[in-house]
Each structure stands twice: as C-alpha cells, then as structure tokens.
Design a protein around this nucleic acid. Sequence first.
DNA 1: ACGAAGATCGACT
DNA 2: GTCGATCTTCGTA
Length: 157
Amino acid sequence: MECEAYRGPLDLAAHSSRGLTPRTRAMFGPAGHAYVYLLYGISWAFNIVVAREGEPHAVLVRALEPTENLELMAQRRSKAPTSRDLTNGPGKLCQALAITGADYGRDLCDGDLHLLEGDRGSVARSPRINVDYAGVWAARPWRFYEKGNRYVSVSPR
DNA sequence: ACGAAGATCGACT
DNA sequence: GTCGATCTTCGTA
C-alpha cells in the first residue's frame, strides 16, 4: 500500500485546511470513515479519516497491490488481469475497487469495504505527490510506501 | 453568477 | 517529457 498523510487544519496541502465545508465534512467526523472526493472532474480519490472528531486528518490511499479479484478489477479498468496498472494511482484504485462519491462518509469498520491488518516490508517515505502549491508543507515526507514494491503510483521527485 | 484551480489520467511526441 | 479532458468546489462579487 502507498498512502499520504494529510494533517489539517494546519497542513495547507489538506482540503480541511480551508475549514469545514460540505465537501470536507467527513474529515471532521470520527475516524474510520471514508472521505471520497472528485478530482479534476475525472477521478475519484479515497481517503480514510484517522483522527478523533473535530480533528480533520485523513490518509489518502494512492496505490495498492492487488491480490484478489484481478479479473473483476481488470474489467473495470479495461486492462488485462496481468496489467501492472490496475491500482497504481488514487483514481485508478477507485476505479478498480468501484469506489465513488456514493461511498462518501461510509463506515470502514463495518461493511464490505474495510481495512485489514497485513504484512508489510520496510516502509519508505517521500514528499507527497502534486502538492507543490502547499508551500513548506509540500516538502514534508508524508508519503509512505513499501520499499521495492512494484505497485506504487509514481516514483518520487 | 462567475471563474480559477485542482491530492489525476491517458494519449501523444 | 508535454498536454488536454472534465466538472466540482469554493472564493469573490
């Protein structure tokens, strides 16, 4: 898994740094719920709310290593099941997992979309992707991924 | 009501 | 490497 931490309201890269709006409402809620938003009018992005209510922190899931249901994900992505491009990007993984705005605010602890603990190798970190607009916050190494894993989104700058 | 910007992707050179 | 698609969101008026 590859993910990025967004630590509003101070972190200017976080949507929640602009305060509570209809879009960011879920981020101000309790942990374990989904914050989903439409990006560039094209792609959905999936986040996990991670802090207590009123503390708008979230983790953007940028990439996953697919291990099950490859056929189904490949079909949704119009790719071959052997493709390495099934889930290597925030928008791609949402397409593969069929995550949309309908999943906004969903409880991720109770349902067919939830998190499991798993093995991981050593964790590498880098600055977050495409947040140059956020000034000094852009330099913070808050992107985390498994070292050497092939299913990451992009190589860091 | 208007307009700019955006936590991206895929096609193309 | 560059570039256009596409549309919601939010600041400004």
